[in-house]
């Protein structure tokens, strides 16, 4: 079923796009690849597990609070002192933060998965002819569009959004012109936290078993997608995230059985090819695709 595969792939793509936006937002203002973004998703999922007996609304609110607070906390404790350090240093630092947080989940929740069973009605299929569409797929698409639209609106129509765009273009000049660095960066991390909360909610509904590496795999692939599209700009990063989710899901569904084990190899093979042709990203502005940017 080609159509079925496409619908599934679009839903997965929407999820990855949301993660990619979070990464690109932070990258825009801080030039920092935030591996710890995945740990926010895991934190949100564990908070959903811990509050599984409380009313749904409370549970969801807790999830959002946990993600946002953790996101801002990480920025304050780990990333702020590193502002201005070499990019390799900050990259490894976010790696280390993710590593440490993963160890925290391991200590607190053991490697065994915890089941956070909520909103399971969304997993029921809405069958139309031979098409099986889970309600979740529709919710994922809706949430994806809504949040992407919302992010675009904040960036293009509000003062803080203007500041963020200015900071993303040239941080130092923006600072000289009166943009407050701390506020802009803090706001980027808050938005990243909100996006992570939504992703963790959607992801937990579709796969209720929460493990310590719950958010990491999604984040790594979304990051690859964001770079593939061009992490410099929000729109291209989003499109790249969507694309990688789409390709992964589609290849997983459509490759013949003898090759389906190798779907990840195909995905990453495509990634290498695209990067060789367009190192700055598939959708990066023309003239930026020079091989050696010096």
């Amino acid at each position: 079923m080609l159509l079925q595969a496409i619908i599934d792939a679009v839903a997965v793509g929407a999820l990855y796009a949301l993660v990619a936006v979070g990464l690109a937002l932070v990258f825009g203002v801080m030039r920092l690849i935030n591996f710890a973004q995945g740990e926010l998703i895991t934190a949100g999922a564990y908070s959903l597990y811990l509050t599984r007996n409380l009313p749904l609304v409370v549970s969801i609110i807790v999830c959002f609070v946990v993600c946002v607070v953790l996101s801002v906390l990480i920025e304050r404790v780990a990333f702020r002192p590193l502002r201005g350090a070499s990019p390799a240093t900050t990259l490894v630092a976010t790696f280390a933060v993710a590593f440490a947080l993963e160890a925290v989940w391991l200590i607190a929740f053991t490697p065994q998965g915890k089941t956070a069973d909520l909103l399971s009605t969304l997993n029921q299929p809405a069958t139309h002819g031979s098409l099986h569409l889970r309600w979740l797929t529709i919710v994922e698409l809706g949430a994806g569009l809504l949040l992407l639209g919302g992010t675009a609106l904040v960036l293009n129509r509000t003062t803080i959004g203007l500041h963020m765009r200015a900071a993303a273009t040239n941080f130092r000049d923006a600072q000289l012109l009166g943009v407050r660095a701390d506020r802009v960066i803090m706001f980027a991390f808050v938005m990243a936290g909100v996006l992570a909360a939504v992703v963790s909610l959607l992801l937990t509904v579709s796969q209720p078993l929460v493990t310590p590496t719950f958010g990491l795999d999604v984040t790594i692939l979304a990051l690859v997608g964001a770079v593939l599209g061009g992490i410099d700009r929000l729109a291209s990063a989003t499109a790249g995230g969507f694309l990688i989710g789409f390709i992964t899901s589609f290849l997983g569904d459509e490759l013949p059985a003898s090759l389906s084990n190798f779907s990840l190899s195909f995905t990453f093979g495509i990634v290498i090819l695209v990067l060789l042709i367009r190192p700055a990203g598939l959708l990066a502005a023309l003239g930026q695709s020079s091989v050696e940017r010096v």
Binding site: A78, P81, L82, A85, T89, V92, A93, A96, V97, F99, A100, L101, E102, A103, V104, W105, L106, I107
Partner: peptide, 16 residues
């Protein structure tokens, strides 16, 4: 998991 935690924290501190 404590080993990883200590190692991770140490590295962040080190980098800072």
């Amino acid at each position: 998991g404590a080993a990883d935690l200590i190692l991770g924290l140490l590295m962040v501190a080190m980098l800072i």
